[in-house]
Design a protein around this nucleic acid. Structure first.
Length: 842
RNA sequence: GCCCUGGUGGCGGAAUCGGUAGACGCGUCGGACUUAAAAUCCGGUUGGAGUUAAAUCCAGUGCCAGUUCAAGUCUGGCCCAGGGCACCA
């Protein structure tokens, strides 16, 4: 074995061997239990960044650990390869999106191989290739048939910079998730997936995911935004047309219904024109026009003063018979609830602000419970003028007819029930989640497989005509419309129904559609009859461990959960949730800031591979922080890991002649006569500690500190031996062989090289994970801690066989303790077996 | 405003059940080897007091209380940082 560690040399060598021998291929059939380890698939942007390196290393170590522990592990990789950057590159450099994308994939594949990742490349999935997007289109058609994909006219988010609409999930603080420019509203006809149909299940099933972090689950729950309340319908008494009209409102506070003093509809409310009197028309129109001009950001701005104008018409409160005016104000949102709000200024802060500004009347209907007696005695003045803020806490109803004196929490139900009984309302559960807008006015995506026929309307493309291929004859330099519309061959087609002239849909699908099912395709990547067979998908899924960034907490993870449930209902699979366990890894930082090109604090993985090797990169990226936390990259840290691997290498190379891998004692796992050798115990402790740390939330940072402890212990042990006898050699063999097995999931190349050089058979990555002996995984003696009044005063080496009385005796006999307790009364003595004695004195 | 996560040395971070706070590493200081440097090896490194040096003592896990023989860990109340949601009725 060479004396010096040359990572670049051995890494190349082993990567070639693994590829040639198919070391990491996963058979579908195996007598071992399955385990599916998955990293979020990358967008082929050009080069790997450190975030990728961290993500894939974590998953790779998990996959290898599980494999050594007897699982048949599925560990695939693919490319989320549709998307706007490819089109932008096409415009900028004149390269075809496809060419640009496939070249990037080629380069990044090379990088992934250099990292020594244990992928089964036979299952590679590339979402922009027809053999994949054919099935994305096929799944669209299934959803369409089931009524889960539909087209509608709607107010949608439009990004001018990207030239396309966006889903709600892709608008962050009123800005485009990709380019950060301000999003506008447009009224367009677009394709949607009916994710709202699954709102309740998506929320409820979060409880079925104990393997997901609370942060992600709460983010999804917030996004779904369930609220329970009531719909009340208020008759309009003076509609200008003379028609009988009513305005329905959604409220979560039916208990405050007797306190309504006015009603607000959104500027975009559908019936607003019919509810406006001729005298108010001009002002209302002006207000609505102004509201249209405002961006989402302006409109939702927190400190904006509320504004509105009256419509001139009135409603009746069916609970009280009171008449109150209708207003329009932009603090009512057209898209939520019914687009109309009942205003109770005394018990809602927004209504309070508005009423104050426009001098609208107020009426108190809830008082704090401790005021109940005063109110009953007629001593409590519930005059609204005395109120200087809305009372939004719980309390007792007043001024509410037969509901007076009732707790407001109970009144919610009782009042709604009355509305139900009398026919002007019902119980209603409302969600914030909107349907998923999947149309994109871009070229580089999977074409939506429908055609439009003047006679037959919307017609799905027949399944046997899939895939609808992207046209090649397009001009990427066009501005203001999708490049796909410049194709002379694409749009023109015939109707599958009547055979007449028809046009194709020119919009493509959101890339998130492609990535909502890719992890299913890995189970059966080469299937050309179906997206996947039911048998294989039910065998491999759900994913046992999913690893990726927190930025997908809502987007990708919510869409994938929806897809799984929808495909289950289509009978394509038999499980409810796609990802059993989710690890959201932290960001990779440099100098305390996220690595970014604009800040100039990026580190190129290629340089690290070249200068230190992949094993150092893998070791370092796992070493300093637990996976879920942010990781601060430091050059000194890399250097430290490289030195450590050198230290490991020297340990092995300098002992190569002493280490016998096939020592029968080692094979049987026991070392006769050597059970009390300290090093043997240290090794057992290391196996136990490392196994537990990986099993328990993948705490790789402590795993690596335990590697270091073990290496330090072997050096120390050697330093104390001048000459090794046969028994010593057996101990050393045991220690070194165990060390490289324990390290093999992380330092994949170094350990493979060492294993082979030491005479091991086959690949170290096919070996069994070491087992520990509980009796040996502890020190041979214990350190008894002696406390007085809970403070440590002495430490005594003791035999672990001592019983409680003997330990107490031992503690009290310590000269130091004797001195400290001298002249004091011992009140109590607590003995913790094998650990500690606490003497309580006065 | 609501929700989630976190707060431990100069830094990253350790610490099954409440039982030795600071594992392991980075940095740094000192030493060995060397003509010298690199590499390597050994030792110190929470703060304060103390000592030639040690021994030793005191304080200490965001803050304030509490439970306990014993609290980084449990309970209650705060403060701060990061993230999510938000005129959602």
């Amino acid at each position: 074995m060479k004396e010096t560690y040359f990572p670049q040399e051995i890494e190349k060598k082993w990567q070639k061997v693994w590829e040639e021998e198919g070391t990491f291929k996963t058979p579908d059939e195996s007598d071992k239990p399955k385990y599916y380890a998955l990293s979020m698939l990358p967008y082929p942007s050009g080069k790997l960044h450190m975030g990728h390196v961290r993500n894939y290393t974590i998953t790779d170590v998990i996959a290898r650990f599980k494999k050594m522990n007897g699982f048949n592990v599925l560990h695939p990789m693919g490319w989320d390869s549709f998307g706007l950057p490819a089109e932008n590159a096409a415009m900028k450099h004149g390269a075809e999106p496809e060419k640009w994308t496939l070249e990037n994939i080629k380069y990044m594949t090379k990088q992934l191989k250099m990292l020594g990742l244990s992928y089964d490349w036979d299952r590679e999935v590339t979402t922009c290739l027809p053999d994949y997007y054919k099935w994305t289109q096929w799944l669209f058609l299934q959803l369409y048939k089931k009524g889960l994909a539909y087209k509608k006219d709607a107010s949608v988010n439009w990004c001018n910079e990207c030239g396309t609409v966006l889903a709600n999930e892709q608008v962050i603080d009123g800005k485009c998730w990709r380019c950060d420019s301000v999003v506008e509203k447009k009224y367009l006809s677009q394709w949607f997936f009916k994710i709202t149909e699954y709102a309740e299940e998506l929320l409820k099933d979060l409880d079925k995911l104990p393997g997901w972090g609370d942060n992600v689950k709460t983010m999804q729950a917030n996004w779904i935004g369930k609220s329970e309340g009531a719909i009340f319908r208020f008759p309009v008494v003076d509609a200008p047309s003379g028609e009988k009209m009513e305005v329905p409102v959604y409220t979560t506070r039916p208990d405050t219904v007797h306190g309504i003093t006015y009603l607000v509809v959104a500027p975009e409310y559908k019936d607003i024109e019919a509810l406006t009197t001729p005298e108010n028309k001009e002002a209302v129109e002006a207000y609505r026009a102004n509201a249209r001009k405002m961006t989402e950001i302006e409109r939702l701005s927190n400190d904006r003063v509320k504004t509105g104008v009256p419509l001139g018409t009135h409603c009746i409160n069916p609970f009280t018979g009171e008449k109150f005016p209708l207003w329009t104000a932009d603090y009512a949102l057209a898209e939520y609830g019914t687009g109309a709000v009942m205003a109770v200024p005394t018990h809602d802060e927004r209504d309070f602000d508005f009423a104050k500004k426009y001098n609208l009347p107020t009426k108190v209907v809830i008082v704090p419970e401790d005021q109940k007696a005063r109110w009953q005695d007629g001593k409590l003045n519930t005059c609204a003028e005395q109120i200087d803020a809305a009372f939004t806490e719980e309390g007792i109803l007043v001024n509410s007819n037969e509901f007076d004196g009732m707790k407001n929490t109970e009144a919610k139900k009782a009042i709604t029930q009355k509305a139900v009984d009398e026919g002007f309302g019902e119980f209603k559960t409302q969600y914030r989640l909107r349907d998923w807008l999947i149309s994109r006015q871009r070229y580089w995506g999977a074409p939506i497989p429908v055609v439009y026929c003047e006679k037959c309307g919307i017609q799905p493309v027949p399944e046997d005509q899939l895939p609808v291929l992207l046209p090649k004859d397009v001009d990427f330099s066009v501005v203001g419309k999708s490049p796909i519309t410049t194709s002379k061959t694409f749009a023109e087609t015939t109707c599958p129904c009547c055979g007449g002239k028809a046009t194709r849909e020119t919009d493509t699908m959101d890339t998130f559609v492609c990535s909502s099912w890719y992890y299913m395709r890995y189970a059966d990547a080469k299937n050309d009859k179906m997206p996947f067979s039911k048998e294989l998908i039910n065998h491999w899924l759900p994913v046992d461990q999913y690893v990726g960034g927190i930025e997908h907490a809502i987007l990708h993870l919510l869409y994938s959960r929806f897809f799984t449930k929808a495909l289950r209902d289509l009978g394509l699979l038999d499980f409810d949730e796609p990802f059993k366990n989710l690890l959201t890894q932290g960001m990779v930082l440099k100098d305390g800031a996220k690595m970014s090109k604009s800040k100039g604090n990026t580190v190129d993985p290629d340089e690290i591979f070249e200068n230190y090797g992949a094993d150092t990169a893998r070791l370092f990226i796992l070493s300093d922080s637990p996976p879920a936390r942010d990781f601060d990259w430091s050059d000194a840290g890399v250097e430290g890991c490289y030195k450590f691997l050198n230290r490991v290498w020297r340990l092995i190379s300098s002992n190569a002649e002493n280490v016998d891998i096939c020592h029968p004692e080692l094979v049987s796992g026991s070392l006769k006569n050597k059970e009390n050798d300290d090093l043997v115990r240290v090794v057992h402790m290391a196996i136990k500690g490392i196994t537990n740390d990986i099993s328990n939330d993948f705490q790789f940072n402590t795993v690596i500190s335990k590697y270091r402890e073990l290496v330090n212990a072997i050096y120390d042990w050697q330093g104390k031996k001048s000459d090794l006898n046969d028994e010593d050699k057996a101990v050393l063999s045991f220690a070194i062989v165990t060390l490289i097995k324990l390290m093999s999931p992380v330092a994949v190349h170094l350990c493979e090289e060492a294993w082979t050089e030491l005479g091991g058979e086959g690949s170290i990555h096919a070996q069994e994970w070491p087992k520990w002996d509980e009796n040996l995984a502890k020190a041979s003696s214990i350190t008894l801690v002696v406390q007085i009044n809970g403070k440590v005063k002495d430490k005594i080496e003791a035999d672990e066989a001592l019983n409680q009385d003997e330990l107490k005796e031992l503690a009290l006999s310590s000269p130091k303790i004797k001195e400290l307790t001298n002249g004091k009364t011992i009140v109590k003595t607590i003995v913790v077996p094998k650990k500690l004695v606490n003497i309580v004195v006065k």
